[in-house]
Amino acid sequence: MHHILVAQNVSKSYGDFKALSNISLEIPENKIYGLLGPNGAGKTTFIRIVNQIIYPDTGQLVFDGKPLAPEHIATIGYLPEERGLYKSMKVGEQALYLAQLKGLSKADAKKRLKEWFERFEIGEWWDKKIQELSKGMAQKIQFIVTVLHRPKLLIFDEPFSGFDPINANIIKDEILRLKEEGTSIIFSTHRMESVEELCEYIALIHKSEKILDGKLSEIKNAYKNNIFNVLLQIDDSVNGLQQDIKEKFNVLSSKPDREEGSWAISIQLPSTDTKGVLAELSKYGNVSRFEEVIPSANDIFIKTVNGKERNG
């Protein structure tokens, strides 16, 4: 697989504070790559290094097969977490300025901006000042400015903060569309809900160190614990059954619902082998649900971070 960006043993310190220690990442082309970690883990430092805002103390980065260099700036788009626009500058003028700083000619920038303004149906904002727009409106302009120069690599740092749910959805769709068009995307967040939906690959950074990375589906498989959720349809006498089942299986939780006549339990098996388990359970009643529990990104996140804390 081709990688748009490869980081090799990148370290960065601010005085005595270690922001990144020996981070190595491989970011695949044309995928959405989630850069996850708690606040202060070092995500923003890594992103700033990719944008050449700051430079690593040691280690190197390879962008699209070549060592990362100033000319790559024009092929990267960056939406920082701390973002904003000149408040007293007009929308159109400002967008043109920022696009030209990214290396677009004025004519090209104008043409593309018109297209985007039409897509978002915001043509009449062109001559307004940013301070006259709402926060959500300004965020849309910010998004357009970030992607306007059609970068190979787009970096979004907490892109959905500042958007209401409707606009967040519009932006999410735009991100997916950009990916379809071939853009590689780094998506940095500490909020896990959006990760499940968008990211194919993730890396987890905690206290300046990478503690986990790879394909999200593979990571999830690796974090499975052979836990299954079962819903049993039963008549009554749950108490007796409970004893029986608890003797045979490792029951993690059980929730009887007498009115519905059902019993939800979650059990952990000694291995992934489920042969015979269903038959065994069927003895106690009809099994209306039997499913393996796949850990959510959030579970994995919390589990690894906590595990890391415990182990030092």
Partner: peptide
């Protein structure tokens, strides 16, 4: 002004 309006990081990712 560039700091308080938070545009600074956008700009210095270009220049």
């Amino acid at each position: 002004e560039e700091k308080t309006s938070r545009i600074i990081e956008v700009i210095i990712s270009s220049v």
